[in-house]
């Protein structure tokens, strides 16, 4: 989303526009569930937590200052909900230990988890938009595979891999252009 789209999204979210909530699900649901699973392990619980959070947003009158602060709010809320759930559960000692460790993570460790989630969220989204062959190549690139390995795995020529990589990089760079503008704005 570019800054303009972000503002529109936030405005519609505040107005409780169903379309904005659809966007919210399409863009964040998977990433947040995965993030929650880092704490609660079970998929169903993670899904409930995210669904519950989105319901809360629907019902609350809170206005978020910006798209970025809203994103931070999403991750923080999911984390807190997970920790609460773990606390309230009748849990074994080792589980409690795990909870305590998570709770005492430094601020930065938590930030890094959120950043990792954000990178993958953006990356997977962007890759999903690539043409299929290009997407196949790029998924392997992200796993740290070399061109020759990719060629062998996908049974295509090394030249094709190179070509597809170039095409994919061009497309992703274009998308990145937008992200870059946003990043620039925030540098103090």
């Amino acid at each position: 989303m570019n800054p303009e789209e972000e503002r529109t999204f936030m405005k519609q979210l505040h107005e409780k526009h169903p379309g904005a909530f659809r966007e919210l699900f399409m863009n964040f649901y998977n990433a947040l569930v995965y993030f929650a699973m880092g704490y609660v392990k079970e998929k169903e619980q993670a899904e409930d937590i995210v669904q519950e959070l989105f319901m809360q947003i629907w019902e609350s009158k809170t206005k978020y200052v910006s798209y970025t602060s809203f994103k931070t709010f999403l991750y923080t809320s999911v984390r807190n909900a997970c920790i609460n759930l773990l606390k309230h559960k009748e849990v074994e000692e080792k589980y409690m230990q795990y909870v305590r460790e998570r709770e005492t993570e430094t601020g930065e460790a938590e930030d890094l988890r959120v950043m990792e989630e954000e990178i993958y969220r953006l990356l997977l989204h962007a890759i999903g938009e690539l043409p299929p062959r290009c997407r196949e190549v790029f998924e392997q690139v992200l796993l740290g595979k070399k061109n020759e390995e990719i060629a062998e795995n996908l049974k295509i020529s090394a030249l094709t891999v190179k070509k597809q990589r170039n095409i994919g990089t061009q497309i992703l760079k274009k998308k990145l252009g937008k992200l870059y503008e946003i990043a620039i704005v925030f540098i103090p």
């Binding site: 950043m115 990356l123 990145l176 946003i182 925030f186």
Partner: peptide, 11 residues
């Protein structure tokens, strides 16, 4: 400023 880092890592 972490968004800047996200951008750098991505690129």
């Amino acid at each position: 400023k972490n968004y800047r880092i996200i951008d750098l890592v991505w690129r």
